[in-house]
Simulated assay, not measured.
Amino acid sequence: MRIPKSVSALAAAAALTALATGCGNSEAGGGQADGEQITVRIPDPGNSGALAVGKKDGSLDKALSKVHAKVRWTGSAGPFAPAAQAMSADQLDIAVGSVTSAITSLTQAPGFKFFTATAPDGAGEGILVRKGSGIHSVKDLVGRKVAVNQGGTGEYLLLKALAAHGIPASEVKRVYLRPDQTAAVFNSGKVDAWAVWATYSVAELGTGKAEFVADGKEIGSDNYSLTAVRTAFAERHPEVVRALYTYLHRASAREKRDPAAYLNVNTDTGPQALTGPAKAAQIDISRRGGTVGPVTRGDIERFRTVARFYAEQKVTRTTVDVAAHVLDVEKLS
């Protein structure tokens, strides 16, 4: 499962506030009587993706009703860091994010675990440059300014690309910006490049004025997408987590086969909608992308590779043990 790709993410602080709105302790925090309906709190998915379809047609609530659960949509899907804080504070039960953001979030006091993994998006993420910028390779980034989100996908992609070409990280200026504020800075020329993922790259690629100097596949990205669940919720309601996994697994396979059906779910106009070349780019990326699956041993080894890389690059102080925060969804019942 991917984070809805056409919807601009909220700023971290704003997202955390939104996630908390109207979200006191759920039933999961205080026990559950037999037969009582369970509520699972999930950020509103916006205008694209499997969850957006599940919300609109009621198929997700129908699937969860089999385990006496329903969704409460709250806030908006945005950066993983504030969502991780919201889960740890018992204000949210489910969130989606990259393994890179997950690693930095795990350096705090995590109250969540991961139960799905989707393979890295080799086509939708990478280092974006403006056409005509004179930047034709990763080596051309030396001495340039590159916008990244600190500790997340952007910083990972840039550092990974530089390391692959033997370029010291100190030779490129990292400009830390919130993802939702970067497009204007990038297009104004105040930064020379933008290390970014499909949520934001699709709109830029759709203008025909930007291109990847290196995409995730060329970079060798191990940047998986993960679904996290609040630890206490998973412990009390494993059957709900398993049902949610089954829904996401099947829906993501349908989305891969027919990406267009999962775009512009609620509206085909306005800032949330994808049209023209941007829509075509997103359809191509989705077709080439992965599907939601359980976290395998092979996945965990790649998570460890990212964690070691982050420690080596001084993004984290130590190597984070991601494996300690993974659930085997196939053993949940």
Rank of each mutant, 00 (worst) to 15 (best):
I285K: 00
G97S: 10
I127T: 03
H237E: 02
V241D: 05
R41W: 13
V292L: 01
F233S: 04
A210D: 12
R287Q: 15
L92A: 01
A83C: 01
Q282G: 02
G293R: 04
D192G: 01
D299A: 06
P110M: 14
D215S: 04
E27Q: 13
I38V: 12
L128D: 00
K139H: 15
L106V: 13
V306G: 01
A243Y: 04
K314R: 10
L157K: 03
P277S: 05
V146A: 04
A123L: 15
A243P: 00
H249W: 13
T231I: 12
F303K: 05
K56C: 10
C23R: 02
P277I: 11
H136D: 14
H249K: 13
K279F: 14
I3V: 15
Y156P: 03
K131N: 03
A86P: 12
V265S: 00
K139C: 06
S101E: 10
G216E: 01
R230I: 10
T17V: 11
L327Y: 05
T116P: 07
H68G: 08
S252E: 13
G22L: 13
F186T: 01
I135A: 09
L159P: 02
H68F: 14
G132V: 09
A273F: 08
V315L: 12
S8A: 08
P110Q: 09
A280K: 07
E255A: 07
H237S: 05
I94P: 00
Y245S: 06
G143R: 14
A243V: 11
W197C: 10
A164L: 10
A253R: 11
E235T: 10
G289C: 10
I283P: 04
P43V: 08
I167A: 03
A18K: 11
P271I: 14
A164R: 12
N187F: 13
E204M: 15
L332A: 06
T199V: 10
T118A: 07
A77W: 15
R302N: 03
A210T: 11
G132F: 09
K190A: 07
F115Y: 09
I127N: 05
S105R: 11
S48E: 01
G270V: 15
L106N: 03
V148G: 05
E301Y: 06
A253V: 15
S133W: 14
F80H: 00
P4G: 03
T116D: 05
T118H: 07
A281F: 09
A163Q: 03
G75K: 15
R257T: 15
G54A: 12
V326P: 04
S105D: 11
F186H: 08
V129G: 00
L159V: 09
A86W: 14
A14Q: 08
R288Y: 02
F309K: 03
L248Y: 06
H165S: 10
K160V: 09
A323T: 02
A260V: 15
K66C: 11
Y247D: 01
H237V: 07
L16G: 08
H237R: 06
T207D: 00
L159F: 14
P294T: 06
V172M: 05
A81P: 04
T296P: 09
T318C: 08
G97P: 14
R297S: 09
G111D: 08
